[in-house]
């Protein structure tokens, strides 16, 4: 049985139908990329899985239990952790307080030192408030908050968006290292190459429908498809 099974979910924003019978599955230790153009439904999918949005129909099973429509905190306590697109660092809290906040309900939280080892930059900034951090530091903190909970699965929503290339390289390194250590990851990214470089398997969404599922090399070969759905030139 897959760690995460999403079965024909339909999610709406008010009247607007955003996801149409989206199904996907993620195995343990797997890195899965969700790709697609803006508005394709990638973030909506992650938010629905996390319980931030409730699907109108369909089933979501995580670690063997039905979680569709549970509140986010219950889903987080079961070991699923979203790193949201806007990062959502608590600006008035220090870096350390942000991390401690994340550990409060984790079963086996990391000691803080382990997070600082992974992100030495955060150790230097631990007394700074979240709102004083640069975009790259905020993203490190957002990822650190997820990792310290030692979740069964991490959902990364556009982790590289708007960051300088050198920081993106750093973060890709962190993601790779984490994945190699066995962390299950679902990544949504506009940076198709970065995402395909990390992923074992990928899905492409278009207008709320899954239009591709397969291995990154299979996707790369279909240059016409890449161009049509991802805007990537061959």
């Amino acid at each position: 049985m897959s760690l995460l099974e999403v079965d024909k979910i339909n999610t709406y924003y008010g009247e607007a139908h955003a996801l149409f019978d989206v199904s996907l599955h993620v195995e343990q230790h797997e890195v899965v990329a969700l790709l697609g153009r803006n508005g394709a439904g990638k973030s909506t999918t992650l938010n629905t899985v996390m319980g931030v949005l409730a699907p109108k129909s369909g089933a979501i099973r995580f670690a063997g239990a039905a979680v569709a429509s549970l509140p986010p905190y219950e889903i987080a306590q079961r070991g699923l952790q979203l790193v949201p697109e806007e990062r959502r660092i608590i600006g008035g809290l220090t870096v350390e307080e942000n991390i401690v906040l994340a550990t409060l309900t984790a079963e086996k939280p990391w000691p803080l030192e382990r997070a600082y080892e992974m992100f030495p930059r955060l150790a230097e900034r631990k007394r700074n408030r979240g709102r004083e951090l640069s975009g790259g530091e905020q993203q490190m903190l957002a990822i650190a908050r997820a990792l310290v909970r030692e979740p069964k699965m991490i959902l990364l929503d556009e982790p590289f968006e708007g960051l300088a290339p050198i920081i993106v390289q750093d973060l890709i390194g962190v993601c790779r290292k984490t994945a190699e250590a066995g962390q299950t990851i679902v990544i949504v990214e506009q940076n198709v190459e970065a995402a395909l470089g990390l992923a074992h398997r990928c899905y492409v969404l278009n207008n709320g429908h899954v239009v591709f599922e397969g291995r990154p090399d299979a996707l790369r070969k279909d240059t016409d498809f890449m161009h049509r759905h991802l805007g990537v030139e061959a």
């Binding site: 996390m50 931030v52 509140p71 986010p72 905190y73 219950e74 987080a76 306590q77 952790q81 979203l82 949201p84 959502r88 608590i90 600006g91 008035g92 809290l93 307080e97 401690v100 906040l101 994340a102 409060l104 309900t105 984790a106 908050r145 909970r149």
Partner: peptide, 24 residues
């Protein structure tokens, strides 16, 4: 205190506190 940390965080971003596993 832990409670105070949650309250201060919740004042800024209730949803994120929720996403971090805390029953607000």
């Amino acid at each position: 205190t832990r409670l105070g940390l949650i309250v201060r965080a919740g004042i800024e971003d209730q949803l994120m506190v929720n996403v971090l596993g805390i029953n607000v």
